[in-house]
Design a protein around this nucleic acid. Structure first.
Length: 726
DNA sequence: ACCCCTCGAGTTCT
DNA sequence: CTCGAGGGGT
């Protein structure tokens, strides 16, 4: 026997550490464009790994880095750049009423009196692509596209050719760090000239200036960008070590003074009337502007108010885009197909004679559901008016030939199917529901594929390079038979994948690397990826926050399932003498609802009511789901879900606000609690840690007293917030 | 018993 | 982006 210089146990240990270190290095290298270790160090790790694997072939790990090529793997055309401050989008308004509503909402949230003046800025909204320019010490160090809002793409080299974007900001008040945010766009005249050139050279034409700008900026080869006439207008800022002013308007003026263009139509408005006047003035000027715009953006001018208003899921509460009416077009519905989604929902889709709407050719349009088709009285062959809602998703506005014969020929009405077109199972609409669903569940191959797609999708595990095509391909080969866990076993099929058409060494490595990178997935994303009914991104996050480890959530769901079954059995035993059995009686239904409500109370997460609770119980009750879940957990281990919150004395507490609050609205108080790492609940219970009571508090205060809870007033709350430094 | 808001689910095209 | 529906407040 050979005398090894290292024991087998030590080698196994070291291999594990190496796998982890190399994985981490790869991640840093690709995802964040900020390598932690040098190439030489990286190579040393790889060599040591290969050496140990040579000594102990039976210790080669399933996730061995040696199966994967190194640093160049996963290299996408443009490097990823995380945004220090998320790039948000804005809520849209399409009518004067919605604008008035927006101002009223701001007033309500800030608890301002009805007649208090709310100053807003207004400016034209350019149809380009958002870009963030980071200046450090006044010099441009990085330019990034918006991406998904959290992570964008590095276009630093590309924007070097945009004359509007200075390489350095000029002024004695330029902060150390300042990110200018704005829109990269192509002027109309330049767009026309570019397309002319493209036509002359027989190259592809761009559909509109927006696409031309996007295509020109996101180039791996920056020299292509150099030849394209791009421009830039600032409309805000992101991360900043200091903000030069206390109003939106003042800061924009400073940015302009530092040398970055700002819209000439940026103004301040004293109220709804002035905002709408500005909207109309910009709308009138629209055709004569050098660039394309799709609306007007309003922002609360006071930065202090902006801070208090904060954000909802993906947009600030202090801004709004007032869009121009959408362009419309007419076309013919040539067919109506039925699609099956991951939840089994049957969605009718109209196949259209191609038509240009708002700069894009549209050939498909969702018809949503059975009722919508009926509402439009839609039959194959009808002419319809289309518009792109919010200038993006096409929708049918009107059926022009409703009920008419076509060339004297009567057409059959569209019959919505009562069986799944994919698996033949019965398709039904639940009592009181609009959606028709395939009842096949996991029998239905399309549902299974859709669930897999959901699992790897951007909001869930976000496995790059595993798209619809590959999923279908692998699924049909039976490689994803057991469920999402199979994805993590694909590496055993490396050779088999390589043998498939369209797969090269490099693409397989990229894929396997992307999969390996998700061995420690974010618990909330994993939970979301399971596709539990009514559990979306937000709820998944809230649940993960509450349970920290997903296994605890599963246990709780299992406990609740037992509780439900017992309560249900007891109820039916007691009632059987009276009601008899058969279909669910109204009383039974009422009891079931009440029971679900009580169980929801035990979960104790805001936003999780009876329906969501039932979704959780049923998911973890179904043996097949549990098997899938355990299978996934045998492959991945999500770290405990701990959210970083501002350090405060109420972190981890459950706070209830009651009574009238004087200096802030309820929503604002709740948002503050979240920021301090506390949960805000709607009602007082034994789980409540702290009650913030304003004047006029009633039953909740009594309850709090009965439970002996700590009760404070608004001023004390404000002090806690201040101490946390929020 | 309602009303408002937020969340979930499905979808378009490049 | 829009729609419907769930949750929570009034």
């Amino acid at each position: 026997m050979t005398d090894f210089p290292i024991s087998e146990a030590d080698a196994a240990n070291e291999l594990m550490r190496l796998a982890r270190a190399i994985r981490r290095a790869n991640l840093k290298y690709h995802a964040e464009d900020a390598p932690e270790i040098s190439d030489a160090e990286y190579d040393a790790l790889m060599r040591r790994n290969a050496e140990l694997e040579g000594l102990f072939p039976h210790l080669v790990r399933g996730d061995s880095p040696s199966a994967l090529v190194g640093h160049e793997v996963g290299a996408s055309p443009l490097a990823k750049v995380p945004h220090e401050v998320r790039m948000m989008s804005l809520d849209n308004a399409f009518s004067d009423e919605e604008v008035a509503e927006f101002v009223a909402r701001v007033r309500r949230f800030l608890a301002l009196p009805e007649d208090a003046a709310v100053v807003m800025t207004a400016e034209d909204k350019i149809d380009g692509l958002s870009c963030s320019l980071r200046y450090e010490g006044g010099r441009l160090v990085r330019a990034a596209t918006r991406g998904d809002g959290s992570v964008g793409e590095d276009v630093t080299a590309n924007v070097a050719f945009i004359g509007d974007i200075p390489q350095a900001l000029v002024g004695d008040d330029v902060p150390d760090v300042f990110e200018v945010r704005g829109e990269v766009y192509m002027a109309r005249a330049d767009f026309a000239a570019l397309n002319e050139r493209q036509a002359e050279r027989g190259e592809k034409l761009f559909a509109n200036p927006r696409n031309a700008a996007a295509g020109s900026l996101r180039q791996k080869d920056a020299s292509v960008t150099a030849a394209r006439p791009l421009r830039f207008l600032a409309h805000g800022w992101g991360a900043a070590s200091a903000v030069p002013g206390d109003t939106q308007f003042a800061v924009m003026k400073r940015i302009e003074a530092w040398g970055v263009p700002v819209s000439a139509r940026l103004v301040r408005c004293a109220g709804v009337e002035e905002m709408l006047a500005q909207y109309r003035s910009i709308a009138a000027a629209r055709a004569g502007l050098p660039y394309e715009i799709d609306g007007v953006v309003y922002k609360v001018d006071s930065l202090e108010w902006q801070g208090r208003l904060g954000f909802v899921a993906k947009a600030p509460r202090w801004g709004m885009a007032h869009k121009f009416p959408a362009e419309r077009a007419e076309t013919v519905v040539e067919a109506i197909d039925i699609q099956v989604g991951r939840t089994g929902k049957l969605t009718p889709v109209g196949r259209l004679a191609p038509v240009l709407v708002g700069g894009v050719t549209v050939t498909n349009v969702t018809l949503h559901n059975r009722d919508e088709v009926a509402r439009l009285g839609l039959r194959v062959g009808d002419r319809v008016v289309l518009q792109r809602a919010g200038d993006v998703i096409p929708q049918v506005v009107e059926n022009v030939t409703r009920g008419q014969k076509l060339g004297g020929v009567e057409r059959a009405p569209f019959v919505f199917p009562d069986h799944c077109p994919e698996c033949g199972s019965e398709a039904v609409a639940e009592e009181g529901e609009v959606d028709v669903r395939c009842t096949g569940g996991l029998i239905c191959p399309v549902q299974r594929i859709e669930r897999l797609k959901h699992f790897v999708s951007r909001g869930a595990l976000d496995i790059e390079g595993l798209g619809e095509k590959s999923i279908i391909q692998f699924f049909e080969l039976g490689w994803l038979e057991r469920g999402p866990g199979d994805i993590f076993r694909l590496k055993r099929r490396r050779e088999a994948i390589l043998a498939l058409e369209g797969w090269q060494d490099k693409s397989v490595d990229n894929l396997l690397m992307a999969i390996e990178a998700k061995r420690q997935p974010d618990a909330a994303r994993l939970l979301f990826g399971l596709g539990i009914r009514h559990v979306g991104v937000v709820t998944a996050r809230d649940l993960a926050k509450r349970f920290v480890r997903l296994e605890r959530l599963r246990e709780e769901a299992a406990r609740l399932a037992v509780r439900r079954d017992e309560a249900w059995a007891a109820y039916n035993a007691a009632m059987s003498a009276v009601a008899g059995d058969g279909a669910v009686t109204p009383d039974q239904d009422k009891f079931a609802r009440k029971l679900a409500g009580e169980l929801a109370g035990l979960i104790g997460v805001e936003g999780v009511g009876p329906e969501v609770t039932l979704g959780l119980i049923e998911f973890f009750h179904e043996p097949h789901n549990v098997a899938v879940w355990e299978d996934i957990l045998s492959e991945v281990s999500p770290p405990d879900y701990v959210v970083e919150a501002l350090d405060s004395e109420v972190a981890g507490m459950t706070v209830v606000f009651t009574g009238k609050l004087e200096t802030m609205s309820r929503d604002e108080a709740k948002a503050q609690a979240e920021r301090l790492g506390a949960r805000s609940a709607g009602s007082v219970s034994a789980k409540t840690d702290l009650v913030v009571a304003g004047p006029g508090a009633g039953s909740k205060l009594k309850q709090a007293a009965a439970l002996g809870l700590r009760v404070i007033d608004e001023a004390e709350w404000a002090a806690i917030v201040a101490r946390a430094g929020a």
